[in-house]
């Protein structure tokens, strides 16, 4: 097991946002986490990345407990995140953003190779490399956020709503690229509200409701599940 979350509880002050989450992610998988607004998806990813400390429970990466390590240590171990809302560094250039993604790496030759790979995945980033990141379009910023995370050459890539606010055609392009990234050997944890697109891409999925996992299954089974269809796929056309 590459990544395991066991009985994870996270609190904001006195309010508990996660009430005991269990997740498993195998090497090479694409796992999606679905759920309505406020279900706790972002909180889960932040806890995995070390931005939030669990109140209880364990997170293990390659069998090593990581929930007590500071966020910056996890990047070098192989966990990178493209966070919700992209959070690119707007007043830095595209190239500087990408370089920061490789901040923990010292193997300059391989870093240059990763950069070429990312320019190949997202050619628009190569064209705009000297431009300030804040001047990119929303879709380009999302590509930059993903590219920046990939610059760490992670074992597992955490993505928080990469389709947010993007036109359906662009969502399709980005999800196609996510598939390519996974083919290249990167395990992906994908948080999405666009359940249909996410389930079509993923191998397995979890459904969260108010701080709990309520469903867990293979992606095709979730797509066929009447409850999921009603709650998350009803009339949804994006990503088709």
């Amino acid at each position: 097991m590459l990544l395991e979350v066991e009985d994870l509880h996270v609190r904001y002050g006195n309010v508990e946002a996660l009430h005991g989450i269990n997740l498993q992610v195998r090497q090479g998988e694409i796992v999606t986490i679905l759920g309505a607004n406020g279900a706790g998806k972002t909180t889960t990813l932040h806890a995995i990345s070390g931005l939030l400390r669990p109140a209880q429970g364990e997170i293990r990466f390659e069998s090593r407990p990581i929930h007590k390590l500071p966020a910056h240590r996890l990047v070098g171990m192989g966990i990178a995140q493209a966070p919700e809302g992209r959070r690119i560094f707007g007043t830095l250039t595209v190239r500087e953003n990408l370089d920061l993604g490789a901040f923990t790496r010292t193997d300059q030759v391989q870093v240059a190779e990763t950069l070429q790979w990312i320019y190949q995945l997202f050619p628009v980033l190569a064209q705009r490399r000297e431009q300030l990141a804040g001047t990119l379009s929303g879709g380009e910023q999302q590509m930059l956020a993903i590219g920046r995370a990939l610059m760490a050459r992670p074992r597992v890539l955490l993505l928080d709503e990469p389709s947010l606010g993007l036109a359906p055609l662009l969502v399709k392009t980005i999800f196609q690229t996510l598939w390519e990234i996974n083919e290249a050997g990167v395990t992906i944890v994908l948080v999405e509200q666009n359940a249909r697109a996410a389930l079509k891409l993923a191998h397995r999925g979890y459904v969260m409701e108010v701080g709990r996992i309520v469903l867990e299954d293979r992606a095709d089974a979730l797509l066929a599940n009447p409850e999921v269809r009603n709650a998350y796929l009803g009339g949804q056309a994006a990503g088709e």
Binding site: S49, G50, L51, P70, A71, H72, R73, L74, V75, G76, A80, Q81, P83, R87, I88, F89, G90, T91, L92, E96, D99, L100, G101, F103, T104, R148, A149, A152
Partner: peptide
């Protein structure tokens, strides 16, 4: 420099800087 870029990044968004592996 790399460290200079890390300072600028941390000034913009500390959380995002930590996700880059920067020790804020």
């Amino acid at each position: 420099t790399r460290i200079g870029a890390a300072i600028r990044a941390a000034a913009i968004d500390q959380g995002a800087a930590r996700l880059m592996g920067i020790d804020v």
